[in-house]
Design a protein around this nucleic acid. Structure first.
Lengths: 198, 198
DNA sequence: TCAGAACTGGAGCATACACTCAATATTGAA
DNA sequence: TTCAATATTGAGTGTATGCTCCAGTTCTGA
């Protein structure tokens, strides 16, 4: 059944109230009451427009993550530094959204198989992008080694991101830079093989 | 106040019931009711022995972490490999409890300041231990550089641990080994920049 | 103009949860 | 044996949640 104009406006108000609450109070700050109060709407109106509370939360998070994708077109030419910078930018510049994302991915992904599935798929896409960038950086790497380095790099970035979300003083950017291979060399500074400098 | 023998036994039953529930049903499966039912104890007895539900959950997680500590007495002689192995052992061998730990630390630590405080304190202790091990490994490192390496290493381990919890196929041990400095060398294989040695 | 679809608020439902308390029983040192 | 300290019980309290229901209002297009 087609929506009337007022219905669409109400829907937008609810989405925007949810977005604000997620940013300011985290995932636990979002209750049906807080949403409807902030949106200035009754519970009945809410359920006239959304099937459940989760539906509106997922919709907001989905839209927010899409909004900060560094390469939504998938042009596939970005280098390692750009990928790392994009990750750092998401974690630091979009901290409130990043916080929600991490809470959903880790806090609920470890419990809810449906969420785990979504998170794992996104993770594998990211690993593939990092691995491709590794091979552009050093064409002698075989596939497995590139994937391995990508996984280690992403793991380190994830851990650093969590540190940054926990501790406002933490300089994620400085730490993340050290994960990159030394400038001009074909060798990584991070977790690869032997000590090549001797 | 000293406990009577029966009180200590009841306490043990509660701890063990909580541990079982955490392992089998995850953090959401642990309610006061489920704990007391499984332990065969009234709610009042529970609160005679523990201040809150959280307290008993934290205690179980703390004990599980301590159980894999390579140097419980704090003699300060453990090397990097032992620390890394302990972290990996906790994440893989005690996966159910590790899952709880990560959910608590990340899922709730990003929201609840009291939990954030605990997590941050534990994190700093861990950084200090890793940094000390770095300096034992390579006495020429200055304090800051050792801390930096410790932070990067722990961040990477955290990220790898999350991957391992999400994906049962993920070989955390293999990845974690690559974070260690090459055997016999004073140089790290991981994210330590060469530029700092000039 | 107006039928009927879409929308509205908010009281109230069912449920779940952590936690309290006052009465009663058990323990163990002296 | 005494008795203060400790342990135990479980119905009850207070609070919070997501969601339903529905009588009344507003909107829209034919």
């Amino acid at each position: 059944m087609a929506r009337y104009r007022v219905g669409i406006e109400t829907r937008d108000r609810i989405l925007s109230a949810t977005r604000d609450l997620l940013a300011t109070s985290g995932i636990d700050g979002v209750t049906l009451r807080s949403i409807t109060e902030r949106a200035g709407v009754g519970a009945g109106s809410f359920y006239n427009l959304f099937a459940s509370k989760d539906e509106v939360v997922f919709e907001v998070v989905r839209a927010s993550i899409e909004a900060v994708d560094p390469d939504p077109d998938g042009s596939g030419t970005e280098d390692l530094a750009a990928l790392v910078d994009a990750f750092v930018a998401f974690m630091t510049d979009s901290a409130p959204i990043a916080r929600i994302y991490v809470q959903l991915a880790v806090g609920r992904g470890l419990v809810d198989p449906a969420i785990a599935e979504r998170v794992t798929r996104a993770h594998h896409r990211r690993v593939a992008r990092f691995a491709a960038a590794w091979r552009r950086h050093d064409p002698t790497l075989d596939h497995h080694e590139a994937v391995r380095r990508a996984e280690c790099m992403l793991a380190a970035l994830t851990g650093l991101g969590i540190s940054a979300l926990m501790d406002q003083e933490f300089d994620m950017h400085a730490h993340a830079r050290d994960l990159l291979p030394a400038a001009g060399a074909g060798e990584p500074r991070d977790g690869a093989g032997e000590d090549r400098r001797r």
